[in-house]
Design a protein around this nucleic acid. Structure first.
Lengths: 101, 101
DNA sequence: TAAACAAGTTTATGATATAAACTAAATATT
DNA sequence: AATATTTAGTTTATATCATAAACTTGTTTA
């Protein structure tokens, strides 16, 4: 039977966020917004969810006088991402199974 | 920028259906139900959506006197699945990109 | 013939993603 | 100096979606 997919990661925007963060040391809100093309609101919500799950760490600081939100993936996030990819591959490696009657 | 994922395929159950159908010639309702672990209702709805999109062909016949629904993937479905996998790979190949400031 | 089962479909509900509206502060404009 | 605009988000509302529950129709079995 096909494995269950982590619902937190099986979302286009959250997956994009994780994918981007997996490739860099850290990324701020605007970078993520540019790269994903998401609206601020949607991005804010999805960052929150990933953060609450402990998949990413969010740091709120300042760049000069302007607020600045920086995200980075956590060890837990890396692991979840890896698991998700592993599961997903079972779906997309269109299987050579026996016949289905 | 990361590509958009086909929302019809980016659903756990619909993806499972497509994944199963990609590996076999045809599969009936019950086989899909067993393999996916889905409820009849959910399966029925998702088969309809895939069918309406032209990703699968649904044939209703009889096995003896009992109704029997058989599904197979269409050329369009194969293509959509291939495209989806291609897009998805860009998400899950956690990229070595430049720095994110 | 009545109960249980098979194979689904339809309807209802609850969760989710997304967009729209809003907030607060900083910077630019007149 | 006052007003307008931009930045950087958050909160709230809406629309879609997945899922489960309830229902339907016909078939076996007791």
């Amino acid at each position: 039977m096909l494995p269950k997919l982590d619902p937190l990661l099986h979302s286009e925007l959250r997956l994009a966020i994780m994918s981007i963060l997996a490739g860099v040391d850290e990324a701020d809100f605007n970078y993520l917004k540019e790269q994903t093309g998401a609206t601020s609101g949607n991005l804010s919500v999805q960052i929150d969810k990933l953060s609450e799950a402990g998949y990413i760490a969010v740091e709120k600081g300042f760049k000069g006088k302007m607020p600045r939100t920086t995200c980075r993936v956590t060890a837990k996030g890396v692991e979840a991402f890896r698991d998700y990819v592993k599961s997903l591959k079972k779906y997309i490696s269109a299987g050579k199974k026996s016949s289905a009657q």
